[in-house]
Nucleic acid binder design. Sequence first.
RNA 1: GCCGAUGUAGUUCAGUGGCAGAACAUUCCCUUGGUAAGGGAAAGGUCGGGGGUCCGAUUCUCCCCAUCGGCUCCA
Length: 561
Amino acid sequence: MEKIRHSFAHILALSIKELYPDVKFGTGPAIENGFYYDIQTKNPINENDLKRIENKMRENIKKNIVFKKKSITKKEAQEIFKDQPFKLEILKELKDISIYETESFIDLCSGPHIKSTKELNPKAFKLEKIAGAYFKGDEKNPMLTRVYGLAFNTEKELEDYLKLKEEAEARDHRILGEKLGIFMFDDEVGSGLPLWLPNGTILRNIIKNYLYEELEKNDYEFIETPHIGKISLWQTSGHWENYRENIYSPIDIEGEKFLLKPMNCPFHVKIFKSKLRSYKELPIKLAEFGTVYRFERSGTLHGLTRVRGFTQDDAHVWCMQDQLEEELSKLLKHGLKILRKFGFKEYKIYLSTRPEKYAGTEEGWKKATKALETVLNNHKIDYDIDNGGGVFYGPKIDIKIKDSLNREWQCTTIQVDFNLPDRFQMFYINEKGEKEKPLMLHRALTGSLERFIGVLIEHYAGALPFWLSPVQIKILPISDKFNKYANEVKKELESYRVKVFNESETISKKIRQGEIEKIPYLLIVGEKEKNSKTVSVRKRGKGDIGVKTIEEFKNIIIKEK
RNA sequence: GCCGAUGUAGUUCAGUGGCAGAACAUUCCCUUGGUAAGGGAAAGGUCGGGGGUCCGAUUCUCCCCAUCGGCUCCA
């Protein structure tokens, strides 16, 4: 399949070349579900041109064009590509050079390719969209136009994929979140700053309460810290020099500079340092739902999954070297338990190793990376290694959850920190009565409530499980005459989140409304139910499940709790 | 931040160089109902914001803001 998609990319390039002779080519590989080619043209092409290019491609495919491979010398290549500056740039890094020829389009390419366009199905591809992309993925390079295409073996596969994508778009948390009264954005408030609506606030509190209980069981102590602090805190921590472009400009008050906090760590460190710590206290675990502000570049914002103000379920653990493995193990186990509780079964785990720029010693990095590895292996967890993807202060394990469009979002993160204990000169008193530097771990289980809720909405397509639903039960009186009985039923169910739909609408309309709101249970009450002290139960996704006494209904929902 | 697209009522969207349109939602009236939209009326707009061209700009143009698709980035 990859060979086919890659060959499509070449036919795309050939067709563009025929339509736009002045085109300069970047690269054009196969990707998941299709292919792309990066190009530069004098007159920029736009979405309306795609159809024309597509038709040209079909024409070319029908010509049974043969893919001819040739090995050539660098000199020959420089001659062939003398009008293709990007190809010449790529050529610089190549040793063995081969080219593929498809009529007038010659590409620097090691292949493999199909024999001829006979193998391409002209009905199983589609040019999808265009976008800008930096040459070689580097911001400093010029931006080329990337033409994306989809390609499959059969027309049916293409149609299935398009259908799947359409369904995925219907799960988009940005649309569902507003419809379900969870959150909103407002131009005047500012980008990346969500406003939490009543239903969303209930959801946040449910999640917070659950995490609070879970962490307490695991010996965490909760703290709360301010939203701003003196700039020197983050100068000491090193964040100011390393991440300044992502920190909101300082607030100048009475000659003193304050920052909106971009991270909670320094505050937690201050609490650790507020008294002399003994080895007997370790591990010390401090947790906070800490709201931080980061100035993310405008083009990177995305609904709730990438925002500028967000609340982390942040915690820091300080321990001794010989406690490291056990603590990491607990963190990982706990993280996975929590993801399972929320219904996430598909995620990817990454171990990120030392980047080029780093704090701490090589020895320390080795030990910590080994510890992370050991823990992953002990739990028999599959993971990918993200080489050099660690933060400058230490290696980490990330758990990424996929959203409806198959994009991965980092939620859980467990990080070792060699930087802050040094910079803040942290120590505890060991058994021998000497000062010793503790190991420091950062962790967040949900990553941020914002991102987590965004992914959660998409995961369930808005139909949150019973325990997470802001409104669990809605009582729908057949007519106004039964509002009183509806309120009596509500009283009986007061340990749940119940609402009565007491407006003057037809029952069909009320049901429709309740279904749109994705309420887990709708209880319909009228003459019949009032007389027999029952409710007619309509379960989300199942429809009418019959008349139940209130006790019977309680037994049903108790299982959902 | 960069490339491209978009911005009209609370929402989803038509439309136009010369008085601004629909559906849903809202308010009121009628209807009191049995498992996904009962009927009618009213109200609702600086056509994202600011400059420019024009007798006249929501429409053309420039700048800004915001959103969307990517790229880059993501402690």
